[in-house]
Design a protein around this nucleic acid. Sequence first.
DNA 1: TCTAAGGGTTTGATCGATCTAAAAGCTGTG
DNA 2: CACAGCTTTTAGATCGATCAAACCCTTAGA
Lengths: 321, 321
Amino acid sequence: MAEKVTIADVARHANVSRQTVSNVLNSPEVVKEGTRQRVLAAVETLGYRVSAAARQMRTGRSRLLAVRIETTQDGMNVFDRFLHGLTESAARSGYRVLLYAAGDDRAEIATIDQLLGEFEPDGFVLTSTHHGDPRASWLAERDLPFVTFGRPWGAPAAGHPWVDVDGAAGTESATRHLLGEGHRRIGFIGWEAGSGVGDDRKAGWSRTLAAEGLDAGLTLETDGSSAQGQAAARELTGRGATALVCVSDSVALGALQVLPAVVGFDDTPVAAAVGLTSLGQPLAEAAAHCVDLLTGRLSGRPAAAHVLLTPSLVIRKEPRS
Amino acid sequence: MAEKVTIADVARHANVSRQTVSNVLNSPEVVKEGTRQRVLAAVETLGYRVSAAARQMRTGRSRLLAVRIETTQDGMNVFDRFLHGLTESAARSGYRVLLYAAGDDRAEIATIDQLLGEFEPDGFVLTSTHHGDPRASWLAERDLPFVTFGRPWGAPAAGHPWVDVDGAAGTESATRHLLGEGHRRIGFIGWEAGSGVGDDRKAGWSRTLAAEGLDAGLTLETDGSSAQGQAAARELTGRGATALVCVSDSVALGALQVLPAVVGFDDTPVAAAVGLTSLGQPLAEAAAHCVDLLTGRLSGRPAAAHVLLTPSLVIRKEPRS
DNA sequence: TCTAAGGGTTTGATCGATCTAAAAGCTGTG
DNA sequence: CACAGCTTTTAGATCGATCAAACCCTTAGA
């Protein structure tokens, strides 16, 4: 194990004081070019890296962003792609991602509280926002820096930064795609009403049909499983539907057993595997925006902004013979 | 934002010295019962939590485990479930999980090196081990604590702790299941030879057929995609196969378009969705063992142990009409 | 009675970086 | 040649915990 190199070692090696080394790294503009070079060279040859712990001690900043790792639900989740993007973007901005697990909102708040005392993350990223979400208000009350990936459903006036994907725009483009292929009786298989995300996705479908003067009554709610998706697809085709827009790939996969003109949501690996047309969320981009908003807030730039990204329709032919 | 509570605050409140508070938390046995209670009460009322940074400064231990977040490949990855288990198990042992991203082995080593200088993680968890893996040897040379999730393929004598799932045992049980259903011509769709994991899974199938005196020639290699899985299934059924064991759910999904008697590997959400029988890896358990081995090493307990877990066959009826 | 041996608790130093404040180096001007 | 007015560099103090060693007190043995 390499003996650790401290700022004092670098200072000695470059014949300057500790503080000058610190300045070279943190406020290069106050240091004379010559010394700067000399110090940088010393940093290089010694392989010096600032100790995050020591820095945190003094500055109170940990360069850590905390995120809860989602439990994979029944569905085919896309969270890992978001997390990957978050980790990469954070690294580019000099931050690292700290994970935590929590069963429900209360447990999550307790964990956040604990983390604040121990590791003091500089910011939090909340995912899966929902109606009456207590986490955002808890953080907001304490004036802690955070972003949500997901709109503040039911609290549109919430002043915190957020990033989300425009589900309605997605299903609108899916619906238009099916219209373009000549379909006129297009159904929608959703989740139970009440979830912000689900309602939003449904809205895009219905407003598009309404705009064309078509029937927006061919819709059913499910629990999100493929089985119920398949059942719903049977029912809806029975009622005349020739194409279906689905709230998720999971549901779409079930529907695909019934008819070919189906569009899913999330563009999961499954969609690619079975040749399902689906709406892809720009997750890496969303993650990058989360990091931007958060680090912006952290470096004192203006607050409260939000970003709404548009999913893109990935059109596939069903490969099934 | 709550003003932070330090150990000195607790000491003052309980009328003892800082060190006594520290002892109550770290070596309770040296403190008299009465004082212990008093200090704990003070800790409670003040809501004190040790500052990880300050502790790390002094002890050199960060209580952080670092893990690379995998890039979701073409396949339907299961990494997020492992990661979730890891986060939970780590928390139970008082550790947190720090994520990092890296494109290839060299980049990963560079990142680990950097992390060591900055955040000083106490241990590392390497995933996706493969032949000639330079990461394990790099860490081993420096005598840094780590575990791998995956055997040291090609270096069976490697002295580091590892956890893995017995792929061969899995495909063996899958093959026996198909034998039990009366199949005699059972094929195997794999990956290209050379990957430890793929070869292992194939071995379980072939040794089982060999033990029964049956033909183990019905096998093809693919790139792991559903499309190639489907093509391979066509070819193999053409050569007389009536059932197929597959190296992954992705491949199995393709095969499922050709014939019903298919077993996949990983028990991904897709398998559940389409009613595919599949081998489930005990990921939460694997993660827990990783944490155990690592924290064991960290607290000075004996080194080098390993754990081989058995996957379980999840039998499903194909729901397709 | 005096000393030794511990149990229980406290004091001072320390980890490595950054903050603050002030010293030292320049430059140009009167 | 001194000095104001900069620029550049430096010397302590500090963040919050733990280590090492000292200290106090009580009890036991000589």
